[in-house]
């Protein structure tokens, strides 16, 4: 500790003892902040106070001796202080590693959405924390097929991110060899089952949309299927679909489902971060979600997805406890 601090402290103490004003107390508080910035430990502060007293008058021996006890106790506080400082720098390092992981994860999903003359795609995917447990993908094929994946990986953070890259590359390598979505999930299940921790699993909806025939063929693995809006009837229907989540059982089989979209029909795919949401004291009801979807029907797929996200975020008081992904396909 420098002489300067000591002098400053003695002066402050002297001023305070002369008048006992709130001014000096305020200065002392500010000094505390500054001393912390200078990394002055609690025990050094005790020592400083002891030395300062010697400048101000005759210090009784018992007061002087009592500082030894105080110092000894404060060393433990000092250790804790030093430990927090070191943890803080480790935390910073950890945060920057997380930022790298987060950026890497973003590179696993498509950077832009494909454009078709009579099909609109809207997408909102937001991570609750830095790393998302939701995975989605949109892959276009030369034959006019548009393959969509929407998926939720149990657990969040690094384990989800690592699982996600496995999903992406497994799907890419399987992609060209397979026939239907049911086959895709069956193979993917075997990859996932063999390679992830038994405590984890993945829910997924995978499907291919034929942009010529406007037919969506899909299969479901433990994933909540979305909605289909029928413009002619002005009604929403739950998409059908059942199947075991990926990674649970090595020989799961999946069924293929099909929906056909007419002009004005809308397909809404989502993860449970959209539906499992607390609004005040109760959970969002599926019917309510449908009514919010209904309110946005006149807009483009992207505006619809954006508005719905804002609406739900507002309803849950800007809390996003789970990763949120919604994909909207609208035939125009």
């Amino acid at each position: 500790m420098t002489r300067g601090i000591e002098k400053k402290y003695v002066q402050l103490l002297r001023d305070y003892l002369a008048g006992q004003g709130e001014d000096q107390l305020y200065d002392a508080q500010q000094l505390g902040k500054w001393l912390l910035l200078q990394d002055i430990s609690p025990e050094e502060m005790i020592d400083l106070h002891g030395r300062a007293l010697e400048y101000l008058g005759d210090v009784p021996e018992f007061v002087r001796a009592s500082f030894s006890i105080l110092t000894e106790v404060m060393i433990e506080y000092g250790n804790e202080h030093r430990s927090v400082t070191s943890m803080r720098s480790k935390h910073k390092q950890f945060q920057s590693e997380m930022a790298v992981a987060s950026a890497m994860q973003k590179s696993l999903v498509p950077q832009e959405l494909p454009v078709y003359p009579d099909v609109e795609i809207g997408l909102v995917s937001v991570a609750a924390k830095q790393i998302s447990g939701d995975y989605y993908n949109i892959v276009t094929h030369d034959d006019g097929r548009l393959c969509l994946t929407i998926s939720d990986i149990t657990g969040k953070g690094i384990s989800a991110a690592m699982c996600m890259s496995m999903l992406k590359y497994a799907m890419e390598s399987l992609g060209d060899m397979l026939h239907g979505p049911d086959e895709m999930l069956r193979h993917l299940n075997r990859v996932v089952e063999r390679n992830i921790d038994p405590s984890m699993f993945v829910t997924m909806l995978f499907g291919c949309y034929d942009t010529q025939k406007h037919r969506f063929r899909y299969a479901v693995a433990g994933h909540e299927p979305g909605f289909v809006y029928r413009a002619k009837e002005g009604r929403f229907y739950d998409m059908e679909g059942k199947g075991m989540a990926l990674g649970i059982c090595s020989d799961s089989h999946y069924q293929e489902y099909e929906v056909h979209l007419d002009v004005g029909d809308v397909l809404i795919l989502l993860t449970d971060g959209v539906t499992e949401r607390k609004i005040g004291r109760y959970y969002l009801h599926r019917d309510e979600l449908v009514s919010y979807l209904e309110a946005e029907l006149g807009t483009s797929a992207q505006v619809m997805a954006d508005n719905l996200y804002s609406k739900l975020l507002l309803l849950s008081q800007f809390e996003l406890p789970d990763d949120y992904t919604m994909m909207i396909l609208r035939r125009t």
Binding site: E43, E44, D47, S68, T71, E72, I75, E76, N79
Partner: peptide, 11 residues
Amino acid sequence: FGTIMQSRMAT
């Protein structure tokens, strides 16, 4: 060693 360092040594 100063007083603080003496105490840290003891700790």
